[in-house]
Design a binder for these strands. Structure first.
Lengths: 160, 160
DNA sequence: ACAAACAGGACCGGAGGGGTCCGCTTAGTC
DNA sequence: GACTAAGCGGACCCCTCCGGTCCTGTTTGT
């Protein structure tokens, strides 16, 4: 299913929310504004901060602020910040020298072109593009009358 | 991490193995040839058969045969056969009307362009491409002396 | 000094996937 | 026609990972 972690989804919401003004916004404030639980918002923001997508202001009256504007942030950057490096992992990931038949295994390196293709695809899409896509979905009555309803109820609204 | 299921990885190995000859090959035979446990090979082949990537011959002297040649099979087809539709799922997948703030939620539809980009990227790569990439990795001494070793030991050999 | 807010880690519960097994059906072979 | 090799479909378990929460610092404005 090529599942993307839900945290990454939250990250996009938080980043878009952060783009609404230039001043710092607190994690509790974003939580109430977006409906995402506060601890989760905090967790997401920490990851985004360490990923260089937002800057944090500690102490009282602190909060977070966008580092770059939305059209300068690629989706790949968000995914990398939340989920780590983008990779369709082959074999057992994280196990150092775990596969005993490494030399015989015909899989080694096989997914590299796929990884590169996905990487370039995700680098070409910015958060501004995603925001625009969401905007389109906000006016389904005009553009695509049947789409909102079907997509809301159909969990298989996948691309393929 | 954009994790891809290990079963899909196995599927590629199995398909490449199947491409070695036109005659039917049994699941136990492929299991011994690839080192993948026999029940798992069987499971993968079942999924590939229902996905139309291989055809099965039942009964004694039965087995599996490729439906199309490797350069006619896109990676997206394999992923779809094993893992289901390709989608970076937003919100809670499978829950019908689970999100109570659907109209307010700014996420709805946001990932659509990303899904489409990934879909097109995966459709452009065939198993023949992956096989070729694996072949390059088979001669690291000539092409890239340091690559085999580093990639073998480094679980973070991701694209980004 | 106090309080508000971030930082960093520990922790837990549930869902999903890897992997296995079993009974059934099909179809060559002797 | 019986036997057997092989696929078919499903049930099942265990383990890992992720979502989500919490707690204890540390920083900094008031």
């Amino acid at each position: 299913m090529l599942r993307l972690s839900k945290l990454t989804d939250y990250a996009v919401v938080v980043l878009v929310r952060l783009a609404r003004c230039d001043e710092v916004q607190t994690a509790p404030g974003i939580a109430t504004a977006t409906g995402i639980p506060e601890p989760t918002v905090s967790k997401v923001l920490k990851a985004l901060a360490s990923g260089g997508l937002v800057v944090s202001q500690r102490g009282a009256r602190g909060g977070y602020r966008l580092m770059r504007s939305l059209n300068e942030v690629a989706v790949s950057a968000v995914i990398t910040a939340i989920d780590g490096p983008i990779a369709l992992t082959a074999c057992v990931e994280g196990s150092v020298g775990g596969c005993e038949a490494e030399n015989l295994c015909p899989v080694r390196g096989r997914w590299d072109p796929v990884n590169e293709a996905i990487q370039s695809a995700l680098s070409a899409i910015t958060l501004a593009d995603m925001q625009e896509a969401a905007m389109v979905r906000s006016f389904p009555l005009v553009l695509e009358p049947a789409r909102l309803e079907s997509s809301r109820l159909d969990p298989t609204r996948a691309v393929s």
